[in-house]
Design a protein around this nucleic acid. Sequence first.
DNA 1: GTCCCGACTTGAGATGACCTAA
DNA 2: TTAGGTCATCTCAAGTCGGGAC
Length: 922
Amino acid sequence: MDVENSDNAENSALNGSGSRDSSEQLNGLTNGYTEKHKSHKSDHKDKHRDKDRDKHKSKDHKSISKDKDRYSSGKDKERHSSSHKSSRSDKDRDKEKDRDKHKDKEKHREEKKSSSSKDKDHKSSRDKDHKSSSKDKERDKDKEERKEKDKDKYKDKHNSSRDKYRDKEKDRDKRHSSGKDKEKKEKRSEKENSGYKKEKVEVKSEVDSAKEDSLDEDEPKLVIKEEFQSQSENEQNASTASSCDYSMSQFKDEPKFEENSCEEEPEENSDEDIPLASRAKRKIVDDEDDDVPLSARKKIKKEKKVKPEKKSKKRQLSDDEDDYDEKPIKKEKKKKKVKEEPVVESPKKGRKKKEEEQQEVWKWWEEEKKDDGTKWTFLEHKGPVFAPAYERIPDNVKFYYNGNHMRLSDQAEEVAGFYAKMLDHDYTTKKIFNDNFFKDWRKVMTDKEQGIITDLKKCNFKQMHTYFMDQAEKNRNRTKEEKQALKEKNEAIVKEYGFCKIDGHTEKIGNFKIEPPGLFRGRGEHPKMGKLKRRVVAEDIIINCSKDAKVPDAPKGHQWKEVRHDPSVTWLASWTENVQNQVKYVMLNPSSKLKGEKDWQKYETARRLHKSIDKIRTEYRDDWKSKEMRIRQRAVALYFIDKLALRAGNEKDEDQADTVGCCSLRVEHIELFEEKDDKEYVVVFDFLGKDSIRYYNEVSVEKRVFKNLQLFMENKKGGDDLFDRLNTSILNKHLNELMEGLTAKVFRTYNASFTLQQQLDQLTNAEDSISEKILSYNRANRAVAILCNHQRAVPKGHQKSMEKLKEKIDAKKDALKDAERQVKDAQRDAKHGSVKEKTVYEKKKKMLQRMKEQLAKLEIQETDRDENKTIALGTSKLNYLDPRISVAWCKKYDVPIEKIYNKTQRDKFRWAIDMAGPDYRF
DNA sequence: GTCCCGACTTGAGATGACCTAA
DNA sequence: TTAGGTCATCTCAAGTCGGGAC
């Protein structure tokens, strides 16, 4: 089977299920591709956003689309047998991509050059954008151009992978519709088939000139009025664009979209259906000014906020179990790599095993739960461990300023050391990082040093850097004895500080070590990257323990900031870090009762959602036709959260990286295409999500969603909120009304776990070998990781290791051919030969069989590794997948649990391993 | 209703222990 | 025995969400 066919087979496997299932979910995601992104948010956000996009393409654009094509494999066996061939084709594709990448880089460099001068002049934030329409236009134009270029590049690279999902997407969307809609859709499709083009023209005109909406007959007529003047409008009379109030008219017999109607239509609940922002503004600015988008409110909030220097407190088993736990952690690494041979136990392993056995197992899940809000009754611990005091570097390691040696003061040297250590890191090439570092570094300098060191460019940290690298190298090359001594020392620390006593049990603490001082490594284009994270001392620490516990001793000569006895929280110690003013906590290990219980509860909530999901989906689909704009927005946002597993998207402060989630999407983050690559009603998402990881996806949505989006975008600028009448708290409040405990986050958990269940059902073949089953599991896991957009950078040396593996496979194939010849000869000899010759024949046959198995394993390994190169499986495995699904799967298909979960993971999911049987269903 | 903040979960990257092949 | 590679573990940034003050 060639690659193409294989992919098709996989696709069809995905589409094989019934109503709206995980396959649909997956298809929605895999339709496009997402891309890792290290963004820039600098002076001019918009420009940088564009630049970043370029950057992605050139720097990080990986073969994730290929992975997406593959992850959903229906029949792995076929793939295994053809993996060799496939990987060749893949390599070719990779080569092509590399060539493209190179071109992109060149292009990007040019673009960057031309835009850099402009960037300097643009210190404006989003708020400023509203004020300057001309700048806006200029920027938008600029952006559009670049966007177009970007798109083309993406298109070139990823069309093939997207194409494969195009059909599936259509199918899914059809299936996504509830029965009623389906019928209508079918009827409509008949019409559409006859006059598709015409229909599309009509759609456009509906929006532009308030013509009749031919969508559905039962849809209320929507009148969009300019009921209010948006803030931007108020601020810029020059601009012709105006934000509108999209209040709804009464239902009429014929559904209609009326836009920009001049007619003022009094609404009974007009206040309900006003952008949230406007309500705030009305109160604060002008009682008469009725409707302002949320963004306006945000602006007011920001203006109101007097931010002293920095003050962005941001939001801010069964019986098998014991057997499973017998395998020491490290030994599993290799086992995970599809290794089936029994592992011979080393003495070290034996020791570890003993240790594991000694570990207390608290079966808290068999106890009755407390519901009084208290997390514990008794809590005792030894307090956190502080970072070691600073030790000066040797005198022969010199720092130079402007070519002259300078002996720095202790503090200045320590901070200089933080920078020197990072000299070969990307961070030090970033202006914001350097500026922040230099500013904070100067703060710790003596007056004299401040007088001399005035320019970072004149600082020479090279000797310091070399010194630190040498130290690191030395540490790596420690002798066995040194390593052992260090290990014992660390173990002693863990023994003393790494455990706490809680309600009669000893539990592991997660992070008992206080974060050492250093330079803040904000991700993406964090405006505070490079700032000094100062050393935390006892005087910063709040200790939490029970009243009847022994209060931990503060380090000699120090005292705790506070000792608290608060059983309503789970933390043992906390402090406020100085860079973002966020509270940091010392908490328990994931294997603890407190964490496990929460985890269990999380999956139970997701399972409850499974029971209500049909109702919820029907409801939000109905809400797409609501006469209230706020409800429509809520419904469309919920659809995205459900279908695409988007995060909720809280608002963020200006002093954080500019990333968004569903509710905080801006108009500039989506593009609408009535038709794109043979798909109808395509929404292209392109934004930076959590950790500044890029989310790019081309999704075909239902027509009504598409129409609503057009409506939401009407008369808005790129920087305006797409859902201007929605925020996470409104959404979650609504969700909680639909189901107790339901929040946006639950959809991610639900869809991830449901997808895993579905994929495992589809991909697992009871007859497969363990290796093949594990590959199937990884593929199911991978499907979820793609759904959740969990990406990683391609591991260093991935290509090299793939090449090596390839060589191994080739060598094995040659050996196999040779062995086959030998078997043939031996067979011929055995036919008329003696017993001895027959034995030889049997031996050779066995050897051949073994070699075939080895080859298969290698090929599976190759496939698995390559498919995984840009996808991080860990996050979904640890946070989104109900572990009971995996446990049940292992039990059902006789796969040892340690092939799926390593020791740490088994500890974390002990409750699941204990309680789930082979028949557990999510 | 808004804003702010505390408490917690989620997430990618860095580090280093350990395994395997040479 | 060692170099190289893999993966578990650690680290800490960055999210979500609920609740309280105003």
